[in-house]
Nucleic acid binder design. Structure first.
Length: 142
DNA sequence: CCCTGATTCGC
DNA sequence: GCGAATCAGG
């Protein structure tokens, strides 16, 4: 079964990728994807560092042949993350669990891994800050 | 030979 | 858009 790249999974990918996790680790964490899929998706998202622009390749015809691709050149840089929520989350019991931001903080599997726990915005599973992080590209048009 | 991310290109 | 195959570097 292939769970497509839902927004939640994309968000996890972004966080994990930025957290210094390797593609293999991320793939294992997300599950149901290979590291190639993770890297491929990361590339499409505009992540990935232009450190090694692999270009010089004869490309004899290992698979099939030509495809009129005009090259990709520049890719849009992702916006910088907005202001981080420095304020501490509400104390336990101050909010019902379903009103707490479910955004993962830290490295999954790590000892201090936890969730954001700030108050959520509306019906969203995340707080104001993480909604912007999570749904950055969405809610644009119009 | 193991791993890493990056790119290409058929689907 | 997706991801295996492939590449290139450590």
């Amino acid at each position: 079964m292939s769970a497509g790249w839902t927004e939640e999974r994309v968000v996890r990918l972004r966080e994990l990728w930025g957290s210094g996790m390797t593609a293999a680790q991320i793939a294992d964490e997300l599950g149901d994807v290979t590291r190639n899929a993770v890297i491929g998706k990361a590339n499409r998202l505009g992540l990935s560092k232009p450190g090694r622009p692999r270009s010089v390749k004869p490309k004899p015809s290992p698979r099939r042949h030509i495809a009129p691709r005009p090259a990709q050149g520049l890719r849009p840089e992702p916006e910088e993350t907005p202001e981080a929520p420095l304020a501490p989350p509400p104390p336990p019991g101050a909010l019902p669990q379903h009103r707490r931001c479910q955004f993962p903080i830290g490295h999954p599997g790590d000892d201090d891994f936890r969730f954001c726990d700030h108050e959520t915005v509306s019906g969203k599973p995340y707080c104001n800050y993480h909604c912007r992080v999570a749904y950055r590209q969405r809610v644009a048009a119009a």
